[in-house]
Amino acid sequence: MHTYIIRRILISIPLLFGLLTINFFLIHAAPGDPTDIFYNPDMDPEARENIRRIYGLDQPLGVQYLKYIQGVVLKFEFGYSIAKKRPVKDEILEALPNTIQLSALALLLELSLGIGIGILAAVKQQSTFDNATRVTALTFYSMPSFYLGLVLLFLFAGGVSATHWFPASGMVDIVRHESMSTLGRLGDRAIHIFLPSLTLGIGAAAGISRYMRGELLEVIRQDYMRTARAKGLTERVVVFKHGLRNALMPIITIMGLSLPFLFSGAVIVEQVFGWPGMGRVAVDAAFQRDYSMFLAVNLIFGAMVVVGNLVADILYAMVDPRVRLS
């Protein structure tokens, strides 16, 4: 298994390298350049030229590319962000954990809600619960997350004062967090992450719940479920031990494939809820033509796809003994 993982990672390196190269030339070919953010009549063209020179933007593209690649390969350096005035690595190291935190919780919500509701809906097929969740799931699934975010903001983060239960943005109460007890801080973090992760996770949860229901209903019809019942197992053991694990296998694949979508969803959710993560770094980098930042962000998104698939494959192999990693 270790060799498998290492091999998969090694295979993905040229892939990511190619991605980096394509992105490098794409972003440079895109209209505009990083000094556009200094675009105002107070700024002399001379100052703009100075900045271009400082960042090496005046050099031929090929030279810029070689320098960039050299930094990445030899020193694992990703250059300086023109818009943030700091090494790209610093900005990313600050933002990435926040996005991971948000996405991880969203994934947890997505899976627990999606799987939980899917199971209940399947077990109580055609019940009021099943029908109600079908309609709700469809609603959440088709609702754009920025819209859902705004609705949640309005309902529970200050728009309606009677139900102002959650803060509207940020990761912590920036004024009071410092002076809180450990428990208080934990609670503070929890109420801040709740709405954004819910917004990010609920659409996918809706999808998962329908998949889960379908899969479980499919699995419940399987012969081995009858075998399990014939052994005298309780319905709970039958469904949760024998049914669930089989029904989960397709869900794992869906989940692995959905990881990149979770990240791109984070772009929007982070914007609405002011969550200081990669999504916002990505949006800024693209709009500001912050070349180095843009490249690094895309590299990370690319790596996410690779990791997502790898994790899905490993998980799949863990649940399904018929699959061997090789």
Binding site: G158, G159, S169
Partner: peptide, 14 residues
């Protein structure tokens, strides 16, 4: 820093 104007206005209100 709140990157969304709707959100900013909401926080002003609340």
């Amino acid at each position: 820093v709140v990157p969304d104007q709707e959100n900013l206005a909401l926080q002003l209100k609340s």
